[in-house]
Design a protein around this nucleic acid. Sequence first.
DNA 1: ACCTGAACACCGTTCAAGT
DNA 2: ACCTGAACACCGTTCAAGT
Lengths: 237, 237
Amino acid sequence: MPTPRIRPSGRGRTDGPALSAAAILDAALEVAEREGPGALTVRRLGLELGVDPTAFYRHFRDKDELVLALGDRIIAMTLEKIEPVDDWRATLRSIAGAAYAMNRRYPAIASVTFARVTGGVAEREIVEMLLSTIARAGLPPAETVLYYRAIADATLSLTGQAAAFENLEPSLRAKDEAAWSQIYGALPEADYPAIRAHARELAEVRETQVFDAVITAVIDAIDARAAAYRAGGDEHD
Amino acid sequence: MPTPRIRPSGRGRTDGPALSAAAILDAALEVAEREGPGALTVRRLGLELGVDPTAFYRHFRDKDELVLALGDRIIAMTLEKIEPVDDWRATLRSIAGAAYAMNRRYPAIASVTFARVTGGVAEREIVEMLLSTIARAGLPPAETVLYYRAIADATLSLTGQAAAFENLEPSLRAKDEAAWSQIYGALPEADYPAIRAHARELAEVRETQVFDAVITAVIDAIDARAAAYRAGGDEHD
DNA sequence: ACCTGAACACCGTTCAAGT
DNA sequence: ACCTGAACACCGTTCAAGT
């Protein structure tokens, strides 16, 4: 059970501010991972840090600013996990995989940042890395950007979807999870032949397999376009 | 300006219940499209229908039940727009495109249902349609299901992402939108050469192009796998 | 049988007041 | 300069009371 950090009562003004943006970020990241999105409230953060809830507003303009800063922290942690290699395909896989893993570790944050631009330094770095990696495939600028967005948006949106699901109340999540066997496994074969023919497989696919399939499809698409350009730049499929 | 429907004051008991689940769904769909996610509250629905807010609970167990019913309504409207054709690729495109368009029309609902299983009749029908369409490509059951999920999750998650973005307060949306030209267009070329080399293209890509690129990539992946199986069922790349 | 309205336990945020 | 605490305008939901 977490005890709120009580600062020493003898603290004088020489100790500096009781609170800092960095301390709030640390607490927010920890409480979000530990207790989910319901705990990521301004009031709860105050409790966690042993200060009045509204002290928060001296360090962030509003909750959105906090959320974007947290999003950039997640990207920063993602960058630490990436292993750039010679092969651009393997590098793309590493970036997408690292982002997927980190966002799933912090679903409470991922579910609110997956449709946002953080504007932070980590975001700039990962965008630069993705763009320069895709550029190595040899596509013209417009297509490099199109497939950068395809990889980035597919990664962010699929992890956002997984995160939103994980953030559900346990009872709702269990209900949705059971639907594939409960509802879809019991449908009349006359009306739903394809569903019945695939009932077992439907209940068994894993979210990560789906993610891999989509990312692989996009990487293969880049490969195919690059091959077409190598065969002759005027071949627009 | 919408006037709340005031029922005639002379209404007697022969008129039946003042409220019905269908009337609530109609009002919710309309208010969600017209005014966005901030308006999709139990209190607001009561106002819109001219009844006490809590009358809602006589027709739905909780707000989640309403949200799932709305999600199924969107799927039902999507089904009406789909044109099944001979070519399974074109049919998949039609389904994905119709779902994308309908979810973007109701971002307030899409942003909360994109990670859910509605369990409704429309959902079953669209799952059956997708599965039977992909099965026509000639993949074994496990891969049919894998690519069904790839198409379905890519469609839902990308529209969920777009919906979440559209649901932002106008000021936040404008800030995020401007980031590509404001922040990413002004980064030092020494540190961010790839971003600077693609600045214009980054500001110009459209969300629908990205969606098309991802869906096309997945359909091409199905095609490639099907071709491999036609060439000899034992070829697992 | 159905609707009402007070109430509960929450949110994010503002602002005057304290030290 | 920084933190506090009352207050405002909201949420979803419960429950006893009305008709």
